Simulated scan of single mutants.
Amino acid sequence: MKYAKVNGKKVEAKPKLRGICTNCSQEMVAKCGRVKIWHWAHKSRLHCDPWWESETEWHRNWKNNFPVEWQEISHKDKASNERHIADVKTSHGLVLEFQHSLISPAEVESREQFYGNLIWIVDGNRSELDKGHFNLGLSGPIQKDPLAYQISWYGRSRLLQNWAESKVMVYLDFGDEILWRLVLYNSQKKTGAVGPLSKKAFIEDCLNGYPIRVSKLEE
């Protein structure tokens, strides 16, 4: 985790610090080694949120686009008392989950039901070949307003297939200034449609609480 509470305030990990988990209130220790990104870990070594994944610089870079008070927010279901930590939850009620590791369709569905107003941002560079396969498969555009391109998938990975059944917006981040929304994908035909949007525009809309805009092809 990026943050723990120290003397009642959200603080990033620093050597020798001790803190309290913002989700379960258990003791946290700062992990500040030379290899992994500095982070907080539960002293018991058992994370209170089974949905949590080890953070990368990619996670941190995304979180840093948003105010500290929006990052790592404990979200509780009032009916079940189930509790999870949202990567970012804006003051407008939108949850952003930054997903690097593989995730099962069942967990995708569970998170979407739990958070409701959710958008996924998926790390497209987890596999070193996925970006190349994505660019190779792009053709079009097939629609001008909103702008959409056909995508054919030639790679072995299941990057698009894993997110084909999502009920919320899914954006693929290949490390460029453009995000690609996965509009639809047919797993049998291995074809679908994606729409581009500048990362800057996406972040601005999230910060301001606006509906996420779409790109158009000017005549």
Rank of each mutant, 00 (worst) to 15 (best):
E69R: 11
Q71W: 07
Q113N: 14
N61P: 01
E72F: 10
G132L: 06
R45F: 05
I37M: 14
N125E: 08
H59D: 14
G93R: 12
A193E: 15
M169A: 14
W52Q: 08
L217I: 12
D145K: 10
V170K: 03
R126E: 04
V6T: 04
V11M: 13
L136H: 08
I37K: 05
L129G: 01
K2M: 02
S127C: 07
H47A: 04
V29G: 03
K144E: 11
K10Q: 14
V11L: 12
C32T: 15
I119L: 12
P141T: 08
S215Y: 07
S44E: 11
S101K: 08
E165S: 15
K199L: 10
V168G: 11
S215K: 06
R181S: 07
R126T: 11
Q150T: 15
C21F: 01
N81W: 08
I85N: 05
W180F: 13
Y3N: 00
L118M: 08
G33Y: 04
E165Q: 15
D87R: 02
F66L: 14
E165I: 07
N117A: 10
N61R: 15
V29R: 04
H92E: 15
C206T: 02
W51V: 02
I121V: 15
D130A: 05
N7T: 10
Y154A: 06
I178Q: 05
Y149L: 02
A164K: 09
P15C: 11
W163S: 00
A30R: 09
K5T: 13
H75A: 06
H84Q: 03
E12A: 08
R45C: 01
S44A: 08
N81L: 10
V95Y: 01
E204Y: 09
Q99L: 04
K31Y: 11
A164Q: 12
V88R: 03
W38N: 13
K190G: 05
L172M: 14
A30M: 09
R34Y: 00
H47D: 09
Y149V: 04
G155I: 02
D205H: 14
G8A: 12
P141V: 07
S215G: 08
H39F: 03
W51I: 01
I212A: 12
D130Q: 02
E218W: 12
Q150S: 14
M169N: 15
N61M: 11
Q188C: 08
Y149F: 10
K9Y: 10
D173R: 06
I121D: 00
T90W: 01
G19H: 00
R213C: 06
L136G: 02
K14V: 15
K9Q: 12
W153D: 01
Y210R: 15
K16D: 12
F174S: 05
A201E: 13
V11C: 07
H92Q: 12
K167F: 03
R156L: 06
G8K: 13
C206M: 07
P105H: 03
I151Q: 03
R83S: 09
I178F: 04
V68D: 13
W120F: 03
A148P: 03
H84W: 06
E128W: 10
E112D: 08
W163K: 00
P67L: 08
K200P: 02
N208A: 13
K5C: 14
C48R: 01
L179H: 05
V194W: 03
S198K: 13
K190N: 14
G124S: 04
E107P: 01
K144G: 03
E109Y: 05
L184P: 01
E128Q: 11
G175V: 11
S54T: 09
H59S: 13
E27H: 12
K89D: 01
Q188S: 14
W153V: 00
N162L: 01
